[in-house]
Design a protein around this nucleic acid. Structure first.
Length: 287
DNA sequence: CACTTGACCTGTCCGC
DNA sequence: TGCGGACAGGTCAAGT
């Protein structure tokens, strides 16, 4: 599901593909996917140009030259796929999308004046695109409380330790998933970083040594960087802005590897439930 | 207050 | 083959 590396991959793709294009029209078939006042859409989105595409946590910020932003959350099954008239080349996934979108999971369609389109597809309808004046983006409740960006240089192991320790009595997996502690971690990278740091997902924060948290901070950053390099994880639905799947899942050490051998010690990887989520871990080397 | 669970949705998979 | 139910997991609201 789109976590930080997937959202970042979509952001980078959109930055290349849609900046400079002018919005001609926007249509939607599900109100909660596009909860906006039609008058505001017509006044501040239609005929506006895409200025830039940014990201904060798992939220995409599509900035328009009207000083409004299309704030977008993909939640679990959201996709933002650009389909143009140009061909990317033989076998390129985007070429095969021409004429296939919109489909039954398309919630919002953005038409650009050059006849290209941006489709917001979302099978489960949990995601949304909200049009907001730029200055109100940071006022959104989520933006107010979301924690630091893990890939920023100022996100040191000391800061990580301090923020994680706000929730001493919770298990470490629940804390990693808590967006107010730090931004961007979801189920895949919580499991992967805990395996890399050799920490059992249900360990309570108060029982973790400083050295373990230091290791977890280090491994989490490495996992995020590797995943971005591989174009993110396609578990089920995820595709990038060109409709292409990510390759990180081939490098995953525990996620969806239950029943297989741990790549570090050979023990069979197990799956259980921690923090209300399917949780994958090695019972021998994660203690 | 800290923490956990249920709701929001649809598609897929599993057992009968 | 069809059908009911479990499951997938990001975030907010409600519950303990």
């Amino acid at each position: 599901m789109p976590e930080l590396p997937e959202v970042e991959t979509v952001r980078a793709g959109l930055q290349n593909l849609i900046v400079g294009k002018t919005i001609e029209n926007i249509t939607h078939d599900w109100e909660k996917s596009f909860p906006n006042d039609p008058v505001a859409v017509s006044e501040f989105a239609i005929n506006s140009k895409i200025k830039s595409v940014k990201r904060r946590a798992k939220v995409l910020l599509i900035e328009l030259d009207s000083n409004y932003t299309l704030m977008t959350h993909l939640k679990m099954t959201g996709q933002l796929v650009y389909v143009g008239n140009e061909r990317f080349g033989a076998g390129h996934p985007n070429d095969s999308l021409i004429g296939k979108l919109p489909d039954k999971s398309t919630r919002v369609t953005i038409d650009f004046t050059d006849n290209s389109n941006l489709f917001f597809n979302d099978q489960r309808k949990f995601g949304w695109m909200k049009l907001l004046p730029n200055e109100l983006v940071s006022e959104e409740p989520f933006m107010q409380k979301v924690g630091p960006e893990p890939l920023e240089l100022e996100f040191t192991d000391k800061i990580f330790n301090k923020r994680v320790n706000r929730r001493k009595n919770s298990n470490i997996k629940a804390v990693l998933l808590d967006q107010t502690v730090l931004a961007g971690v979801g189920n895949i990278y919580a499991d992967e970083s805990l395996w890399a740091a050799k920490i059992h997902p249900s360990t309570l924060v108060k029982d973790l040594k400083a050295s373990q948290l230091k290791s977890l901070h280090h491994e989490l950053i490495l996992v995020f960087k590797l995943s971005i390099e591989k174009g993110g994880s396609t578990d089920r639905n995820y595709v990038n802005a060109e409709g292409k799947r990510g390759n990180y899942i081939d490098f995953a050490n525990v996620f969806r590897r239950e029943g297989k051998a741990c790549r570090r010690c050979g023990t069979t990887i197990e799956k259980s439930r921690v923090a209300g989520r399917g949780t994958h871990f090695c019972p021998t080397c994660q203690t």
